[in-house]
């Protein structure tokens, strides 16, 4: 089954990290990528630009509107994701727990919906 792991954390954390700590943190992400790929679990994954770069798009009455934001006042923001192919939820939880941000933020694990043919 495929699980989307959504990575939520205070998006200013990285910028507040000292050089050495940040390097180490990034290193732990590269290590995670490598481990997930080696285990054949990795399907995809990316980090996102901060929410300040977000644009909300809506089509209403045939008209496309694009606005700045959203800027929901939450402590944690979506900062990246992994798409992982796991045996079951237990394996997905195990991998999600290894995502470095899990130590400070929250990883939301969502199974992909499968449409029966």
């Amino acid at each position: 089954m495929q699980y989307l792991c959504l990575i939520y954390d205070d998006e200013t954390r990285m910028s507040r990290m000292e050089g050495g700590v940040r390097q180490e943190f990034m290193q732990s992400y590269w290590q995670f990528n490598e481990d997930a790929k080696k285990a054949g679990v990795f399907v995809g994954g990316d980090a996102l630009q901060p929410t300040g770069t977000a644009t909300s798009v809506r089509v209403r009455a045939g008209k496309t509107g694009a606005t700045d934001g959203p800027f929901a006042e939450t402590k944690e923001q979506l900062g990246g994701y992994y798409l992982l192919d796991c045996e079951d939820l237990d394996e997905a939880i195990e991998w999600a727990a290894r995502i470095p941000t899990a130590k400070f933020g929250t990883i939301e694990v969502r199974p992909l919906m499968v449409f029966e043919e």
């Binding site: 699980y3 796991c86 079951d88 939820l89 199974p111 919906m113």
Partner: peptide, 10 residues
């Protein structure tokens, strides 16, 4: 069913 919670003794 949808989240794939396993049937397994841990």
């Amino acid at each position: 069913k949808h989240a794939g919670i396993p049937y397994r003794v841990p």
